[in-house]
Design a protein around this nucleic acid. Sequence first.
DNA 1: ACTTAAACGAGACGGTACGTCGAGTCTTACC
DNA 2: GGTAAGACTCGACGTACCGTCTCGTTTAAGT
Lengths: 214, 214, 214, 214
Amino acid sequence: MAQKTAPDSTRRSERSRRAIYDAALALVAEVGYAKLTIEAIAARAGVGKQTIYRWWPSKGAVLLDAFLDLGEQASRAASENAGKAEAETEIPNTGDLEADLKYVMRATVDEFNDAKYDAPYRALAAEGLLNPELGAEFVEKLLEPQLQLFVKRVEQAREAGHIMPHIDPRIALELWAGPLAQRWLMRSGPLTHDYVDTLVEYALYGITPRPASS
Amino acid sequence: MAQKTAPDSTRRSERSRRAIYDAALALVAEVGYAKLTIEAIAARAGVGKQTIYRWWPSKGAVLLDAFLDLGEQASRAASENAGKAEAETEIPNTGDLEADLKYVMRATVDEFNDAKYDAPYRALAAEGLLNPELGAEFVEKLLEPQLQLFVKRVEQAREAGHIMPHIDPRIALELWAGPLAQRWLMRSGPLTHDYVDTLVEYALYGITPRPASS
Amino acid sequence: MAQKTAPDSTRRSERSRRAIYDAALALVAEVGYAKLTIEAIAARAGVGKQTIYRWWPSKGAVLLDAFLDLGEQASRAASENAGKAEAETEIPNTGDLEADLKYVMRATVDEFNDAKYDAPYRALAAEGLLNPELGAEFVEKLLEPQLQLFVKRVEQAREAGHIMPHIDPRIALELWAGPLAQRWLMRSGPLTHDYVDTLVEYALYGITPRPASS
Amino acid sequence: MAQKTAPDSTRRSERSRRAIYDAALALVAEVGYAKLTIEAIAARAGVGKQTIYRWWPSKGAVLLDAFLDLGEQASRAASENAGKAEAETEIPNTGDLEADLKYVMRATVDEFNDAKYDAPYRALAAEGLLNPELGAEFVEKLLEPQLQLFVKRVEQAREAGHIMPHIDPRIALELWAGPLAQRWLMRSGPLTHDYVDTLVEYALYGITPRPASS
DNA sequence: ACTTAAACGAGACGGTACGTCGAGTCTTACC
DNA sequence: GGTAAGACTCGACGTACCGTCTCGTTTAAGT
């Protein structure tokens, strides 16, 4: 895991790291991931190229860290505002699973439609497809934590008897998360509130006829 | 659509086109999409670079055509074998929707696990994420045709009363196709027959408790 | 001797070669050999770096060719002016060896004191000291041809009985050429007409007392 | 001579200085002057880069000091061996100028042919060509002291009547020292005992015919 | 069958970015 | 305050490909 004489991270320049994150995020939004270059990041950040190569193995890795840092900053800011530290870190539980899922899915759709998040997130996903190491990190640090929120909420619903006991929550959540991801990434259809509402309904109640419903 | 003095496609060298497809597919499997270069394709194909630039705008476009051609060859070969021309071009309808879907999904899983298809397909998906034009072509020529097979089968089921009448087939199919795509692309979980079986069951019957079923 | 798939010199761009020569000579005069970079030559010449690397192995080799070309141009210009094609290509023979040598040596001193020639010539000499390949080429193409002019003149003098028969002309000429080169390169003393006059006298007649001379 | 807040040389680490000299001489022999780097010297010497930059302005200056130190060590060692302290610091005077010069010139040839001295000496000469400051120091500290030995011996010969009174010893010595230096540096001819013998003879007696010799 | 213009192979060209190396400066911890 | 260590900015290295541009040389359509 250590390359040739790993650098001493205690002497690392915090100032440079921040500047690199800012430059990477700004540039990926401006020119797109394909035209994002390490030279440009270094130049924009006022940093030597070697400082980037010393700490990251690829532009994808830089962008992933930058994006993770962006998330941390956001959640740190959120924590400070309200007293509730769980801001955005938990799916609400009003007792009505369908309503709660729709609420979160609509918010997710809005986020995917926000250019600020779309560019880097999409770039990381694309890079992850081709680069297994980065893909694994992407899944572990970005995707899975978000999916685990659904797992938790589905488990709560199961305990309340709203979900059948034999259902695997980790698979269940993919019924709505998978289609959303696919439409977003592939642009294979419009991303609307109606769409995710429908997704949640189909997933919860199935698409085959039920006997006596009410 | 025509660049400067569009080339005369009637005089196009079939031999070169084939050589380029072969080279592109071979190279993407050998070195991966990121390290695939037009120079290498030209060299491997014994072709001038200009011959590639004359007919395609990017390496992604070359690979897409090469992959489409691969599919055409495969289906042409299949047609010749059996008398049934619809080989692989239709989902079976035994009257049992669940069984038919599971059958097709298991076959799809097997295909995704086949390295021969995985490398170029994954590369095209990744490129499509970042390049909207190529993404649109990818969806139109590769993804949507496959999804339409599900649409057709779901409509048949609806007519047979096995699916509720208000269900939108185009959305319904995403309940199982979306999760499968996500797991494959993101490597966010294992791709097994059991997994897709579960997916189909959850999608058909929902995850919430049903009243007296039988 | 041939590197990897030697380039086809028939397709070489004459325009680029000239631009590279001009840029190299201009830059070495401006910033000195140590700060001369291939990137700067390429930029100044409006040429891709690869075009330099394709045809020359090092900046020293570029400069050597540029300087040789400069000499060829000069002698070609000289040839066109006067009818005598041997302009500068031969040492005069007035019958008076001492006078003829002094004449040529004074001209050489003037040339060494001319900044236009000093910078590249000195750079090439320095590079040749450390790089045997380039040094050999420097000697063969620049130094030796000039020394051979002296060899020829000394041989003429020997035939006329002005030089002792057992004298080796190739060594004899070093008596005045060697000290001049050393003073010029090492800056170990002033380079004046008087100095070379003295050199010629000492070399011709020796430094030990002669018996009754006249 | 003093940069910004000149370092206090009384606190200088003798151990480091020695290690730097050793490393510089070893490396220049191993990889050549062009590939000699300050980083490598520091690493080999087990010394911080700053310690080198604090005391020397360039790699050439380091090497010059290292080479001078080498000479001092050698002469100090020689002094301890024999009682005669002037070992190697004076040209013998047997009364036969020709023999004495040939003796010293042959020894010089042997030294130039010794790889141990050739590499650093040649490197310093080359650097001195391009860098006037270092060149001046090279001449003053290395070249001129050696030439002065010849000046002294020629003056002795003049006093003995073996050299004509009007001869300038400083110029006379260049008749044999210049050609030798040129052949060595430029590799423009073989460096043998015969060659320097011839040089001395030509220089002493001239190349033109003498009346009645004996 | 002959002509002729376009496609072709080859590859040199002006560029951009790569990932590495070393220069010279600066900071940290130690002695 | 000198030192070992090494991270920093900067600039150049030599390489790999990009996409464009000639060069002859096939090659296939139209005469």
